[in-house]
């Protein structure tokens, strides 16, 4: 009888601890998204996504905003923290990317953060080069 009571109490304590652990690390302080590891929701070319944003930004936002996507396009400008794909996809890196050659066709994976009207560009952040 006594043994059973101890078993139940320890079981309840364990459950409470597990719930607390889950609440703390799984909910309150859960890991931030890892865009690099996420499977892309869409894969499309740079001219396509730019056209979609220019035609209807709201519709494009409803599809791509805050989603992980892969964009394929030709590099027309780049520095250590970003790469631009023709005709207007701006991709910024958290970790500087190497070996980007102007004019080369590349695949970039990142999170779409929206359309920048000042420059007429679609912007992606947390990008990595997808070979």
């Amino acid at each position: 009888m006594k043994n059973r009571k101890i078993l139940i109490i320890s079981g309840v304590i364990l459950l409470v601890l597990a719930a607390a652990y889950y609440f703390y690390f799984g909910f309150l302080y859960k890991e931030a998204r890892d865009i690099t590891a996420e499977a892309p929701a869409y894969t499309l070319t740079a001219p396509d996504i730019v056209e979609e944003y220019q035609t209807n930004a709201a519709t494009a936002d409803s599809m791509y905003l805050n989603k992980t996507i892969v964009v394929i396009g030709n590099v027309n400008d780049n520095d250590s923290i970003s790469v631009s794909l023709e005709p207007g996809v701006y991709c910024s890196f958290d970790v500087p990317a190497k070996n980007i050659i102007s004019g080369k066709n590349i695949k970039v994976k990142g999170r779409c953060i929206g359309f920048d009207e000042l420059f007429g560009e679609v912007k992606l952040d947390q990008c990595t080069i997808n070979q």
Binding site: F27, L28, K30, L65, R111, I113, G114, D116, E117, L118
Partner: peptide
């Protein structure tokens, strides 16, 4: 001066 910030581009330390 014109400035545009995409709201999704704001990053917090805490994911939640």
């Amino acid at each position: 001066l014109a400035a545009l910030a995409l709201m999704n581009g704001f990053r917090f330390k805490v994911a939640l």
